[in-house]
Design a protein around this nucleic acid. Structure first.
Lengths: 219, 219, 219, 219
DNA sequence: AATGAATGAGCCTTCATTCAT
DNA sequence: GATGAATGAAGGCTCATTCAT
C-alpha cells in the first residue's frame, strides 16, 4: 500500500499516481496497462511507482481500494432510520447516485467490473472491510421487509436480484447504451433509474411477503 | 475468424485451439493469457495459432463468438408459443439452464464478463448477429406483458432489470459464492434460481401493469 | 539448381519462379524476401520452391546465374574484330545497352549490386564461367591499347576505371537519378552514355600511352 | 537517431552499439543481421537497442549516418585553394585515403554499398545534409576545369565517371581483389590509386576541354 | 524524493521447411 | 506435380524492475 511517509509532496505524488493508474487500468485492464502510460499521465517517472508502491500490482491494489472506498456508499449505511421499505429505497438511491456522481472518478465502475470478471488478490483485501459490511446491511433490510418467515435462501436470492440491477448500471455502461438507448443516463435520469429499481424490487418483495403470509394461513 | 477450409483435420485443430483458448482467456484475460499456455493445452504449437487464426486477437474473437453462440440461447428464441408470461418464464429458464449447463464450456461467463467490463472489437463483431436479435426478442415479450400503454423507456428499464439478474449469475460466480453462500448452485438449484428470477420479475411486471391501468382509469 | 526433369510444365514453373524471385530478391534483398511473396507472384505455392530448387538459397543462386547470363554481354566477346580502340568502344556500348535493355529483366542490376556489396556463395559459382572470361577479354583490349610497355598493374587499374564507370550505371540507378538529374536515362540517351564512357576512357588511355612512350624516349 | 541525453555513460553505450552494429550490418546486411549478435559484440543486451535507438531500423540509420559522416570527406571540402586541377587531385586523394584509412571503421564501404544496391529511408535522411553538399562541390570543380562552355549534362557525366572510380574501391573490395590481384591495396598503394584516378580523370577532362575549345574556334 | 540508464525475461509473430494427401 | 496442414526455430520488441546518482 501507500508508504507511511507524511511528506505533503510524497502524498501528492501518490494521489496523482492512483488517479492516473485508475484511468489507465480501467481503459486497458491490469495487464495491458503499462507503467509508462500511467507515469506519463501522472507526470512522474517509472521509478516513482517502485518507490511509492513497490510494484505494479500494489499500485493496482491501491486503485481497487480507492475505487471501493471513495463513494458515499462506503460509509454510514447503518444509521438510517424509518420503515425498511424507505431505507431500501434510500440505499438504492445512494448506490445509483454514486455510480453516476461526476465528482467521483469515472473509472470506478470499470475497475469493479474487472474484479468481478476476474477477482485478484486486491479484491480479497477489500472484501472484508468494505464489501461484506455493506452486503450484511442490505441483507438485513430485505429480511426485515420479508419478515421472519422467509428462509435465509430466499432473503439471499432477493438481495441478489436487487444488487444485480445496481451492478448492471455500474459496469458495462457501453453495452447498455448500445442495447437500451432509451434508458438515457443524463443527470436528471439518475433519480428515475433509482426509482425504477426500487419500485421493481419492492413490488417483487411485497408479492413474496404476501405469498409467505398466505401460505402460512392456508396451512 | 476461423479459416474457411473444410478439412476435417483443420477443423479439429481449430476446435481444440478455441477450447483451450477459452479456458486460458477466461482464467487470465486477453492480455495476460499467453499463446504458449493456450497451445500447450491444445497440444499444438504457437505457429498453429498464426496458421489458423492469423494472430492472438482473432483467436480471441473466435472464442468470444463461440461463447455467445454455443448455448441454446442463441437459437430458436422467436418460435415460442403461449401467453407472454409463460414465454418469459421459459426464456429465463433457458438462459439460467445454459449458464449452469455442464456440457457447455464453463468459461463462457467469464469471457462475457471481460467483454462487459472492457468491450473489445471482438464483441462489436458479434453484437449485430448474436446479441441484438436476442435482446429484441426479450423487449418484445416484456412489451407484450406491460401492454401498449407502457412507454418505451419503461419497457427498456424493465428488460434491463431482468437481464441484470441473469447476467449476475453468469459472471462473477466467485463473488457470488462468497457473499451469498446460501444460494447454492448445485444442479437441482438451477431450476430454483430460474423460478426465483421469473417470480421476482413477473411480480414486478404485473405491479407495473396494474399501475399503468389504474392510472389510466383515474385520469 | 534447376532439376533435371524435362517436362514442359515443370520448366515453365521454374521460369515463373525465377522471374518472380528476381523481382522480389531485387526489391527486398535475399533475407528480407519471403517465399510467400515470391510464390504469390509466380502463382504457385511455397512447396513448389522446395520441389524445384530444394530451398530458398538455391533459388537465389539460380536468380544470380540468370542475372549474369541473360544479356548479350555474356556471349561472343572474343570474336570482335578491328583496331582495339573500336573494340573497346563496341564492348562498352554493348554493356551499357544491356544495362538499359527493356527486354531484359529490370532486376539484374540490383541483384548484381547486392552481390557486389555482399558476395554470397551464389556469386562464387558464376565467377569462373561468366565473369572472369569477360574480365580477361577487357584486360586484353586495354593491354593492346597501352602497348607492351605498360605494367600489369597499370593495365589492371585502367581496366578498373572503365569497369567502374559501367557498373555505376548498372547499380544505384536511384541515387544516380537523384544526384545527377541532368544525365537523363531515356532510350536515346543510352548511346550517349556509352559514347561518353568510351570517350572519357579512351582519352585517358591515349594520354597514358603517350606518357609511356615519351618516358621511354627520355630515358 | 541517437537520443539527445548528454550523459557520458549513455553516449559511450551508443558508440559501442553503433560500432558493433556497423560490423554486423556490413557482414550480414540489414535484415540478416540480428540484434542478438550486435548486442553480444557491443557487450550490452537487446533491450539497450530499444532504449537508445527505439528499434533496429533507427540503429541502422545511425550506422548509415556514421558511415557517411566519420571521414574527413564530410568536412572542409569548400575551403580548398589553388587551381581547380590541384583541388580535384586533392579531393580524390582525400576520398581514397579515407576509404583505406585503418583508423576509420572498415565497414563503411559495405554499408554504403548496401544502400547503393537498395536505398532505405536511412539514406534519404542523410542525403540532404551529407551527400548533396559534397556532390555540389565536386560538380563545381569539374565545371571550373571544363570551362563555362560545357553543358550541364557534360559536367554531370564527367563527375559521375570520377565518382564511379572512387566508389568502385569503396565497395566490392572482395570482387576487386579477386579480379584484379595486381592492384594491391597496401598502405603504400593508397597514394598510387589516388594518383591513378586523378591522372585518368584529368587526362579525360583536359581532352574534353580541348575539344570544346577547338569546336568553338572552328565554328 | 526522484531520475536516467540498463537489463532479463518473455511474448507475439514470422518464416522456411516438412509431410501427408 | 502440387497443395493444405503443421511445426521448430528464431527474431524483434515490450515491459517491469533494479541500480547508481
Amino acid at each position: 500500500m501507500v508508504n507511511v511517509k507524511d511528506n505533503a509532496s510524497s502524498r501528492e505524488t501518490c494521489r496523482k499516481l492512483i488517479e492516473a493508474a485508475g484511468e489507465v487500468f480501467a481503459e486497458r485492464g491490469l495487464h495491458a496497462a503499462t507503467l509508462q502510460e500511467i507515469t506519463d499521465r501522472a507526470g512522474t517517472n517509472k521509478a516513482a511507482v517502485n518507490y511509492h508502491f513497490h510494484d505494479k500490482f500494489e499500485l493496482y491494489a491501491a486503485v481497487v481500494r480507492h475505487a471501493l472506498s471513495c463513494g458515499s456508499m462506503a460509509h454510514l449505511i447503518e444509521d438510517m432510520e424509518g420503515p425498511p421499505e424507505d431505507r431500501l429505497r434510500a440505499l438504492i438511491n445512494r448506490i445509483i447516485t454514486d455510480i453516476f456522481d461526476p465528482a467521483l472518478p469515472p473509472w470506478r465502475g470499470t475497475i469493479i467490473g474487472h474484479e468481478l470478471a476476474q477477482p485478484t488478490a486486491a479484491l480479497e483485501a477489500v472484501m472484508t472491510d468494505l464489501i461484506e459490511p455493506h452486503n450484511r446491511c442490505q441483507l438485513a433490510i430485505v429480511r426485515e421487509i420479508l419478515g421472519p418467515r422467509a428462509s435465509q435462501q430466499l432473503v439471499s436470492q432477493m438481495t441478489m436480484s436487487i444488487v444485480a440491477q445496481c451492478l448492471f448500471y455500474l459496469q458495462g455502461k457501453e453495452i447498455l447504451r448500445r442495447l437500451f438507448p432509451e434508458a438515457t443516463l443524463d443527470a436528471s435520469g439518475v433519480d428515475k433509474i433509482a426509482a425504477h429499481i426500487a419500485d421493481f424490487s419492492l413490488a417483487a418483495l411485497r408479492a413474496a411477503r404476501r405469498q409467505l403470509n398466505s401460505s402460512r394461513r392456508t396451512r
